[in-house]
Nucleic acid binder design. Structure first.
Lengths: 177, 177
DNA sequence: ACCTGAACACCGTTCAAGT
DNA sequence: ACCTGAACACCGTTCAAGT
């Protein structure tokens, strides 16, 4: 099987899902693909760019979008989108870190993040404020996922209600009161 | 000069402030202290615990507290505390990551975080909701700092108004409307 | 064009042995 | 009690050389 950008990224996603970011090294990735480490650098510039593509692969899926028409208000659509994101990222070890790398490079456009902004504008926020509101909500989603994953990792039995949803509701109501 | 826990942590804080987390390795730390790497492990259990103590040193300072009596409402005090935190963490490279390690281990109690919760209770939130509100605000502070620091690192000239304060105000008003 | 082999400059952690 | 020396099992990235 020929080594392509796609197979590299796909395999990286697999390692991330099964073992977490600590195990997603270039060397481990090469081993999984039966190839020398150096070969990877022909298909991907460096690890940072690889992680950005991994994030894109995780987030740019139709499963992580909402049809605005399905909800009676933009606020409802925003809540649902944020919840979808939260639930999708929770089972993927260290996903917040990976997504932060991607948004930091802002090289790849992450679809759910764009939709979040669009919905905030649809709710009546000016373009600039929609960007800031997107930040607030994304910070809360990623922060809550990271917090929850750390609890799991340390075998603290977390309360099922981790407060994500309560905080989300308060944030959205503050944004488009 | 004798090697103590305090000198180890202090030196670690110094490296973090001057060069960032990437340069804060046990080996670099040992070199700075003119000592072999192994010696560090007599004074600190491992790197994770070291980072937790670094976080505590950064946050447990009187400069990062507010006197509730100075503000006419708990909401005002909360805003000021969050702003102080944001401004204090901004110049310290990778500070959000360090603090996430500390809160993840929840071994060390971080004073400003506790005060944030107390102020939310003073504002009328039930104990459980105060914890969730604390999460929302802390997520926003750390997320915004991380976002801003990434912009600096990539030489993108950031807009002075990064939306932190606007988002913070909306969040607080959503929490204690 | 794509990959190997091998190197460079690093990591965190452990532990016998010294003082 | 505290530290050295040295090892173990890793990292990301580069690059001449092969095919």
């Amino acid at each position: 099987m020929a080594l392509t950008q796609l197979t590299v990224v796909d395999t990286a996603v697999g390692i991330l899902q099964q073992f977490g970011l600590a195990d997603l090294s270039m060397r481990r990735l090469a081993k999984e693909l039966d190839v020398q480490v150096g070969a990877l650098y022909w298909h991907v510039k460096n690890k940072q760019e690889l992680l950005a593509q991994v994030a894109a692969q995780l987030l740019n899926t139709p499963a992580l979008s909402v049809a605005a028409a399905d909800y009676e208000s933009p606020a409802e659509a925003i809540l649902q989108l944020a919840r979808k994101l939260y639930l999708a990222l929770l089972p993927i070890q260290d996903s917040p870190e990976v997504i932060e790398v991607a948004t930091a490079m802002q090289a790849t456009e992450l679809q759910p993040v764009l939709q979040l902004r669009a919905l905030l504008e649809a709710a009546g926020l000016a373009a600039e404020n929609a960007r800031h509101g997107q930040q607030l909500i994304l910070n809360h989603v990623l922060g809550s996922v990271a917090y929850r994953q750390n609890l799991v990792q340390l075998d603290v039995d977390a309360p099922l209600a981790d407060g994500f949803d309560w905080g989300l509701q308060r944030a959205v109501s503050g944004l488009i009161g």
